[in-house]
């Protein structure tokens, strides 16, 4: 990132912070401002993916009768998906404009 872009971004952030511009959120992928907001956002993303993974694992286990194994597998997959959610939060998918 060259210096000019950096300045433009900081100017935009400062203007947003002062309420001069409406927050667009395009660059940050919808991250709320402030460390509390970011922290909360990250926590929720991590846990929700884990919950979905565990849920899928338990349901498949009950259906197929393979008691602990699919749960363990999907626990790991859910954790990985949680990490990926957080990665996406800070590095949105390629090709997003603005």
């Amino acid at each position: 990132m060259n210096e000019r872009d950096d300045f433009e971004q900081r100017l935009r952030e400062a203007r947003t912070r002062q309420g001069l511009d409406k927050p667009q959120g395009g660059t940050s992928g919808g991250l709320p401002p402030g460390p509390m907001g970011v922290g909360f956002r990250v926590g929720v993303e991590l846990v929700s993916a884990l919950v979905v993974g565990i849920g899928i694992g338990l349901l498949l286990d009950r259906w197929l009768g393979t008691k602990p194994w699919l749960f363990l597998l999907f626990f790991v997959a859910g954790a990985a998906a949680g990490i990926m959610n957080i990665y996406r939060l800070f590095n949105p998918r390629r090709g997003r404009k603005n």
């Binding site: 929720v44 993303e45 929700s48 993916a49 899928i56």
Partner: peptide, 18 residues
Amino acid sequence: IPIEIISYLSRPISLSVR
């Protein structure tokens, strides 16, 4: 693929829980 699907399915949960 499973990880992406779990990530996709976790959207409504993170959206609502937040």
